[in-house]
Structures are given as C-alpha cells and as structure tokens.
Design a binder for these strands. Structure first.
Lengths: 136, 136
DNA sequence: CCGGGAGTTAGACAAAGTCCAGATTGCTGA
DNA sequence: TCAGCAATCTGGACTTTGTCTAACTCCCGG
C-alpha cells in the first residue's frame, strides 16, 4: 500500500532526509491520514502505545519537514500551528468553533488584482483562509 | 485633531463601550498610529511613562474591542496575534523575516471560484495573506 | 455618606514551543 | 568485531503568549 512505513523511508530519502525511526513514525502519522495535525496531535499519535518520541524530536522533525518542503505550515489558530501534508497549491476552510481545518482545491479559485510587490521582495506564499461558523 | 483622546471617548461610546481611562489609552495607542500591534506592543506603549495598565486589562480590552467590531484580529505569526485598527475590507502583506505587517487594499483584488460553503455554515471572514521575504 | 456593580489589578497558572547538555544510535574503517 | 565519530534523540528547564481569579478601586444613585 502507498502509505506503508517502508514507503515513508523512500519519501524521506527522496526529500534528502535521513530516515530515522522517529522521522518515519512522524511522517507516517501525517501522511497515512490526510489531515492537518498540530505538533501536539502528532505527539499523541506517535506515542499511543508506549512513549517513543520526545517533544523536542517532534518539533525538530516537523521543522525539518517544513524546510525540506515535505509539509506546509498553516497558521489559522492563534494558539497552535497546523502541519499540512498536502503541499500542492490549495486554500483552507477553517471552522472557528470546532477548530476543524479542511482544504479548498485551488484549481478553480482565481485571485486577481493584487498590487505589485515592494522592490526586493519575493512571494513566499499566498494563504487564503475562509473562516466559517455554524449558523445559530 | 482626529485622534485626540477626547475623540477616543466618543469612538468608544459610539461602539457601545464604556470609555474608561485605560480603554481610552489602549484605543489611542491603536488608532493614533495606524499600525498592527500585538497585545505586547500595546502593553509597552500604554505603560511607557509609568505603569498604568495591567496585562489582564490589555487582553480584556482588546477582546472587548474585537467583539464590538472596533478592531480586527490578524493571525499571521504563529507566536502572536496582531490587532488591526482598520476594519474596512482589506488583505495583508506579511514580511516573514522582519515580522512587518501591512495592508493591501481590497478594492482591486478579486477572489473568484470559491466553492459553496457546507450547509449550515456562514462565512465569518476571508483572510488573504501574502507572505513575502527579502531576496538574497 | 454608603452600597453595589463595572472595571481593574497582581500574580498564579496553562499551553505551545525552544533550548541545551548529555545519552543513544548507527555508521565507518581497521 | 570493535572503537571512534557524527548525527540524532532525550528529558527537563525555560520562555512567551495568553487566561483565570479573587481582591480591590472607582464611580454613581439614593
């Protein structure tokens, strides 16, 4: 199957990341379920059976994945960062009352009329977040 | 002049906020300079001469201003929330290396092709953040 | 002058994230 | 096989942002 731990090792290697046991577990947590997880949630998933991976390693690894372009950071909640295993261009729908975060495919979304950037600046990314709430 | 402390009292009253000394100072900090400030920065500004306003009051007041629609929350930095005295529709330009946050006028920006919302949901707001970095 | 409610306060607390020095791991070359 | 070494991992102390609470102050009506 696509998301086996063995394939994780390959995925990591192809992104120039030395595939250690902990890194494979963290990658597996993120990629086997296609969800947006916070560092906390990754910790919880990885350490379900018995404590295996320290907090420091989870944070280090997520930062490493970020640098290597394996995941994306999504900043929607003031209290925690989410990590998104989907790096293809897309936007986000955030349910403010439940904290649920889902993807909006970028394919049909058009953003036009943005002013030119100040000189000497490059775009690092454009984040579009639709904040929604349940009626009532 | 427009941003005197006296006018702050009027502004607060017109938004159904009891204008206390501390609230006027905080409003003045936000509206006299048209900048995006974090709670920390507001604290620092308000307490420059001598300590006048407690942390709790700054947070309470900013939350109150938010509820009353006097300011807007901008979530771009994973470590802190910015408060935006400009409530007219606009987007943001965030310089990731310096932390500087500025406005992009919404007038000419068009966002089209967003999928329909899930049933029973209302949009609370659409945040568009352009993250930029200095070349080099 | 007094009582009460709104507002403020200091400081304890919570949660997310960082940092560091020491311990582990897994090579590599002999 | 084994010592040496660099990379990685670890627990725990620490920092920062923000929340909570119980006591205090201020002001207003009577």
């Amino acid at each position: 199957m696509y998301y086996s731990r063995d394939n994780m090792a390959g995925l990591l290697r192809s992104h120039d990341i030395n595939p250690t046991h902990q890194r494979i577990e963290i990658a597996h947590a993120l990629f086997s379920r296609q969800e947006h997880l916070s560092a906390d949630q990754v910790m919880a998933i990885v350490n379900t059976r018995h404590s295996e991976t320290s907090k420091a390693t989870v944070y280090n690894t997520l930062k490493l994945f970020l640098e290597k372009g394996l995941v994306r950071e999504v900043i929607v909640d003031p209290s925690k960062v989410f990590f998104d295993p989907n790096t293809s261009p897309h936007h986000h729908l955030y349910e403010v009352d439940t904290g649920k975060l889902s993807d909006i495919d970028a394919e049909h979304v058009q953003i036009s009329g943005l002013p030119p950037l100040p000189a000497g600046m490059v775009t690092e990314g454009i984040d579009l977040i639709v904040r929604v709430r349940r009626t009532g």
